[in-house]
């Protein structure tokens, strides 16, 4: 995590006066990094941490921001996405925050980024070894909506007592004929802990499995950290006769023509006509450019 370098003067200079590099004081960053080290050591296990109040509201990514703030170094290149896009308002706001308080370089290109903070998506472009994904997590406890008590869920995790998780999936099939959990689809990590992958669509779940990138999860309001070290087995919960399956896109992207990526639906006129475009704007743009070049060469 290049922790030792944190705190050095930033490369690009333009930093908000009166605040430490990356906003948090070094003591707080160390506390968070200690939590992250534990999280990496016990994949999928939620580590409580002394979450700080951030200048952005709880629920807007304060957990992810604290994780990013505690691991970022002046040499890092940050990409921030929300709903897969770099230019959604909250992604812009968080990127600006780090530009202001850390003076770091940012990018929209998945391949160029060393840290990718995200809300609700994993980029379509495959991640590489050395990259770090930072997820913003609203409710870290996968059992929360089945068992509201924290004391009880902690015990269930400790004992690996996950029967009630399957009760929920069973009920889904009873009611809908399918497992109707579309996002925040629970996974079993490294054969041990059941984990909430944050509200990514289940389309993204397979990208967690054996990923070469380090995945860090931060829940600010709930004050929990958890992690998937690179190359960790991540299995989406299911039944043998109702295996986990992703929702295949129903159309091709109207811009880049991809039939492989997760699509946003746009309603383009008052009659409700729909078009679909990639949720991952960087992926879409690269593909559109490549197609343009290909066409250019052809003509």
């Amino acid at each position: 995590m290049n922790a030792a370098r944190a705190g050095k003067a930033p490369r690009s200079g333009k930093m908000l006066p009166g605040y430490n590099f990356a906003y948090l004081d070094e003591e707080s960053k160390r506390m968070i990094r200690r939590g992250l080290l534990k999280a990496v050591a016990i994949p999928g296990f939620q580590i409580p941490f002394g979450g700080r109040e951030m200048p952005l509201p709880y629920g807007w990514g304060t957990g992810g921001i604290q994780v990013t703030a505690s691991i970022i170094t002046p040499e890092d290149v940050l990409k921030v996405i929300d709903q897969g896009a770099d230019d959604t308002t909250n992604a812009v706001s968080i990127r600006q925050f780090f530009e202001r308080v850390a003076g770091i370089a940012s990018t929209t290109r998945t391949r160029e980024a060393t840290i990718i903070q995200t809300r609700h998506r994993i980029p379509e472009t495959p991640l590489a070894s050395g990259q770090i994904m930072v997820f913003q997590v609203p409710i870290p406890e996968p059992l929360r909506f089945i068992e509201p008590s924290e004391t009880e869920t902690a015990t269930l995790h400790a004992l690996g007592d996950y029967g009630i998780m399957h009760v929920k999936l069973y009920e889904d099939i009873v009611r809908h004929g399918h497992i109707a959990t579309c996002y925040a689809y629970p996974v079993e990590v490294n054969g041990r802990y059941v984990m909430d992958p944050s509200p990514i669509p289940r389309f993204d779940n397979p990208k967690l499995h054996m990923s070469p990138a380090l995945m860090l999860f931060g829940a600010g309001r709930e004050k929990r950290l958890y992690a998937l070290p690179p190359h960790t087995a991540v299995v989406s919960l299911d039944f043998e006769d109702h295996p986990f399956a992703i929702q295949r896109p129903e159309a091709a992207c109207a811009i880049c023509g991809s039939t492989e990526s997760y699509l946003d639906e746009l309603i383009v006129d008052d009659a409700g006509a729909r078009r679909y475009v990639c949720s991952d704007t960087d992926y879409c743009q690269r593909r559109a450019e490549a197609r343009g070049e290909a066409r250019g060469e052809a003509s």
């Binding site: 007592d161 996950y162 029967g163 009630i164 399957h166 009760v167 069973y170 043998e240 006769d241």
Partner: peptide, 12 residues
């Protein structure tokens, strides 16, 4: 089914 699921039954 809950007890069976808690014991690892995974066939709907």
């Amino acid at each position: 089914g809950e007890r069976l699921m808690a014991q690892g039954a995974r066939h709907y």
